[in-house]
C-alpha cells in the first residue's frame, strides 16, 4: 500500500473521478435486497437522489443516496448528481416513513451541490434543503450519513444531519467547490488548487474539526481501491454504530443528534 501523502487538490480529483464508486455500488454491495422506490408524491421522481428499502440480516433500513451517473447517459438522467427540490422532498417522505416503521436511516452523500436552475428556484430549492435538514434533525430513529465522494454545499448537508457522519478517506466535504471558493474569495478561479489546501475539506481536516466522526479507509490492492474490502469494512461500521445508537430511546436519539450539531464550530468568548 503506497503511503504517499496526497495534496488536498489530488484528493478532490480522486473524489471526483468518474470511475469512482457511486452510492448504488455501495448500497448493492453492503445491503441485501435493496428495493428502490420512487417519487416525492407531489411533482416528480428526481433521480439525483435515490431512495429505497434494504436489509442487513434481520435489520431493515431506509436508504437515501445522492447518485451520480456511471455513464454519460445515466449522468444526464441523474442531472450529474445535482438534486432538484423534488429530490429533497422525496428524501423527506422516506425519512418520515423510516420513523413510522422504526427503520434506521443511512444516507450516502455525493454531489457537486444542489442544482442551480430556474425551475429549482421556482420550486423552492432553499426551502427544500432547509426542510430536509429540519425533518432530519427531528427523526426518532438512528441516522448515519456517509460522504463517499464529493460533499459540496447545502446540497450535501441537506441529507447530512445524522447521529454519526462517516467519510471515506479520499472523499471531500466543503462549503462549495474549490473553484467557486477561489473565485468568490479571491476573485480568481485559477487559484483552485490553493483554495483546496486552504478550505480544510479532506477527511482528516474534517475529523480534526469534529465535523465528521469516523474516517473509512480506502484499502489498496494492485494499485487500485479494494472495493470489496472497503465496502465490507463500511458494512461492519454501519452495523456496529446502529447497534450502539439503537440503545438510545426516542428522546435521546434526537438529543444525541441535536448536541452534535449544536456544538458545531468553536468560538472565543470576549
Amino acid at each position: 500500500m503506497p503511503s504517499v501523502k496526497l495534496s488536498a487538490w489530488e484528493i478532490v480529483e480522486i473524489a471526483r473521478n468518474p470511475k469512482r464508486k457511486t452510492s448504488l455500488d455501495y448500497i448493492n454491495e453492503i445491503f441485501d435486497d435493496f428495493m428502490e422506490l420512487h417519487g416525492d408524491r407531489n411533482f416528480k421522481d428526481d433521480k439525483a437522489i435515490v431512495c429505497g428499502l434494504a436489509r442487513i440480516e434481520n435489520q431493515n433500513y431506509t436508504i437515501i443516496a445522492e447518485q451520480k451517473g456511471r455513464s454519460t447517459k445515466e449522468n444526464i438522467e441523474r442531472n450529474f448528481g445535482m438534486p432538484n427540490p423534488e429530490s429533497y422532498r422525496k428524501a423527506i417522505r422516506f425519512m418520515k416513513q423510516a420513523e413510522k416503521f422504526k427503520r434506521p436511516v443511512i444516507t450516502f452523500i455525493d454531489t457537486k451541490g444542489a442544482y442551480p436552475g430556474i425551475g429549482a428556484e421556482e420550486r423552492g430549492q432553499g426551502e427544500a434543503i432547509a426542510s430536509s435538514m429540519f425533518e432530519m434533525a427531528k427523526l426518532k430513529v438512528p441516522v448515519i450519513s456517509i460522504v463517499i465522494g464529493e460533499g459540496s454545499s447545502g446540497g450535501a448537508l441537506a441529507i447530512g444531519v445524522a447521529n454519526k457522519v462517516f467519510m471515506l478517506e479520499n472523499a471531500v466535504y466543503s462549503i462549495l467547490s474549490p473553484e467557486g471558493y477561489s473565485s468568490i474569495l479571491w476573485k480568481d478561479s485559477s487559484r483552485y488548487k490553493e483554495a483546496a489546501e486552504k478550505m480544510k475539506l479532506t477527511a482528516k481536516d474534517l475529523y480534526d474539526l469534529k465535523v465528521i466522526d469516523k474516517i473509512i479507509k480506502e484499502p489498496q490492492k494492485n494499485g487500485e481501491v479494494d472495493f470489496e474490502k472497503l465496502a465490507n469494512n463500511l458494512k461492519k461500521e454501519i452495523i456496529s454504530s446502529i447497534n450502539e445508537l439503537k440503545k438510545l430511546d426516542d428522546k435521546n436519539i434526537v438529543q444525541n443528534r441535536y448536541e452534535k450539531f449544536r456544538n458545531m464550530g468553536e468560538y472565543i468568548k470576549l
Binding site: A137, G154, S174, I175, L185, K198, L201, R262, M264
Partner: peptide
Amino acid sequence: ARMQEGIISLMQMAKTTSALTK
C-alpha cells in the same frame, strides 16, 4: 454561508435549523 470560515459556516445551517425544531 461565510466563505472565510469554510465548512464550519456550512454547519451553522444545520445548527440553526436543529434549534428551530425545538
